[in-house]
């Protein structure tokens, strides 16, 4: 799919956010990826033209960051954290189960184009280990069976809701969010979960709180 006028117009609007146009290259690459499911050569040429860069300069950026894909990604990008903590607490088993179920390995896409599977690095959610992501939305505290169920339901077109975010859309939709983050979905995902509230609940149970401001004790 080519980058149509509307995508180009959105790209141009990104430039406005920054004092210097080159800063827009990352969100523009996210946007290109939302339109094409990958960062194509054509997209890099378009971005280079808009920002008065060489395509080498854009390629240098596009190939540095792991979220930019230079090959088409499936409808859903499934990530399993296999860094030490998640991996050894069960992420390895989750990943293995998904490999079995999908019949693909790391950085591979199912024949039907539905899923690309990746081992991913730490997602800043170690308290929620083992962590899986679907189109980068959190699917916390997974087991092999829960993870397989997630992809099975997605494969059947059923709604799957992120544990701390909105209902799963697809990879391209998330990439659009990364370019235009105020997507109206901030209210999804609810309030803080058990892990985020763990300490606060203990404090409440034990009657603990921060000390009052000196002179304002009541």
């Amino acid at each position: 799919m080519a980058l149509d006028e509307s995508v180009r117009a959105q790209m141009a609007s990104i430039v406005e956010r920054y004092p210097r146009s080159r800063s827009a290259v990352m969100p523009m690459l996210h946007l290109a990826q939302s339109a094409e499911g990958e960062v194509s050569d054509e997209a890099m040429r378009v971005i280079a033209d808009m920002l008065d860069l060489t395509t080498a300069e854009v390629t240098a950026v596009a190939t540095f960051y792991t979220m930019y894909k230079r090959r088409p990604v499936g409808k859903h990008l499934i990530g399993v954290c296999t860094n030490t903590l998640c991996g050894l607490l069960g992420g390895d088993a989750v990943y293995a189960a998904l490999t079995d179920r999908l019949g693909v390995g790391h950085d591979e896409t199912t024949a039907d184009g539905m899923f690309t599977l990746e081992r991913i690095e730490c997602q800043a959610a170690c308290t929620h280990a083992p962590v899986m992501t679907v189109d980068w939305e959190f699917m916390d505290c997974q087991t092999p069976s829960s993870a397989v169920e997630v992809v099975d339901r997605l494969a059947r077109g059923e709604t799957v809701v992120s544990t701390r975010g909105p209902a799963i859309r697809d990879f391209e939709a998330t990439e659009h969010t990364l370019a235009f983050p105020d997507d109206g979905l901030a209210g999804q995902g609810g309030e803080a979960d058990d892990m985020m509230l763990a300490g606060l609940r203990v404090a409440h149970e034990l009657g603990m709180s921060a000390p009052p401001v000196p002179g304002q004790e009541s």
Binding site: T133, R164, G165, T174, L178, P181, D182, A186
Partner: peptide, 23 residues
């Protein structure tokens, strides 16, 4: 007079909430 919040791209829900808060 200009602040930037550079959020890692892999956490869209955090990015959304910060962006909505800015708005």
């Amino acid at each position: 007079n200009h602040a930037f919040i550079y959020i890692r791209g892999e956490v869209p829900q955090a990015i959304r909430r910060v962006a909505a808060a800015v708005r």
